[in-house]
């Protein structure tokens, strides 16, 4: 066996993030092959992993998993640095920002469902901002907002319920 000339020392935490990211990438790619009636309306099942990680391991790990997932999936799907990738990244950054704020809410009253819905709305908001500023610089984009918002609400709720179930099973 040839010995690798580059030796990157990894910690147990790195391995852990890598495993969780692999799971998220898998879900992301499964989702990419599911046809959607309207481009952009997707269930965002990879966010379940982000949410689960946020609850189990904290925000920093969740941010790593989410951003690594965006980069790695785009490389695997051949979208890297394309508009699809930029949309994916802007959505991920916005939803992480929303998660950071939403996790400050009292846990007694707000569960993963709230976090999931907030993340879903932030995700689509981030994407629509990029679409409006860069891809389709027209006011006509506003007609799409209600559809995307409705999709974000429905899928955010479903993902939140799945995450709640996963957390409950774990503990």
């Amino acid at each position: 066996m040839t010995r690798s000339t580059i030796n990157i020392s990894t910690t147990a935490e790195d391995h852990h993030i890598a495993k969780l990211t692999a799971l998220a990438i898998g879900l992301h790619i499964i989702e990419a092959v599911i046809p959607s009636p309207l481009p952009g309306v997707k269930p965002g099942i990879a966010n379940i992993v982000t949410l689960y990680v946020l609850y189990e391991y904290g925000f920093a790990t969740a941010a790593w998993v989410s951003l690594l997932r965006v980069f790695a999936s785009s490389l695997l799907l051949g979208h890297f640095l394309s508009p699809t990738f930029v949309l994916s990244l802007s959505g991920a950054i916005c939803s992480l920002a929303a998660l950071y704020l939403a996790q400050q809410l009292p846990k007694k009253y707000f569960s993963a469902i709230t976090l999931s819905i907030c993340a879903a709305f932030a995700h689509i908001a981030g994407q629509l901002i990029v679409v409006r500023l860069w891809l389709i610089p027209q006011t006509g984009v506003i007609y799409l907002i209600p559809i995307f918002a409705l999709a974000a609400l429905i899928f955010g709720l479903i993902n939140g319920l799945i995450t709640t179930k996963l957390i409950n099973q774990k503990s």
Partner: peptide, 10 residues
């Protein structure tokens, strides 16, 4: 699997 009161609000 039960949404909490804050979840219902959201």
């Amino acid at each position: 699997l039960k949404p909490l009161i804050g979840d219902w609000l959201v």
